[in-house]
Amino acid sequence: MSEKVGVEYNVDGGNFTRAGYASSEIKKILKKLNVDMGIIKRTVVATYEGEVNIVAHAYSGTIYADIDTERVRIVLRDEGPGIPDIEQAMEEGFSTASSQVREMGFGAGMGLPNMKKNADVMNISSEVGKGTTVEIILYFKQIASS
């Protein structure tokens, strides 16, 4: 059986003071596991974007990370308004953020595209009125066949 470590963090909607806590904790774990610095960086960027998305849009959420010797997998699940049109949300620059949120430096419409860019795999599912789940995976080694 291959070794695996799992952690889970709660995220409060609307609490920007705490935004970044989960991604910071996940970063610390990856550093302790001697993961390549470039991969840590991409993981942190993608997770931070997702975490800010939950804070900005949802009522509450959880961020779950599990890591084995092959990859890090992060699942960001929230209870919130959901995304009506995922394809549109994936377009760079598309944003639903209020001006208040934009003033804080968020909501430039780069969140989801940036997550996709930094992750090797990204899956997203959403139900309007219920919430959104985003799964991202980053592999520690390039898969030869790809």
């Binding site: 695996k4 610390k28 001697n34 610095m37 010797t69």
Partner: peptide
């Protein structure tokens, strides 16, 4: 030259085992 003191082990499999034990 970077020389991290944070890592639990050079080998990631061993580091994972150690982290599980730390938890």
């Amino acid at each position: 030259k970077p020389r991290s003191m944070d890592k639990l082990d050079e080998d990631m499999g061993k580091a994972l085992t150690k982290m599980r034990r730390v938890q």
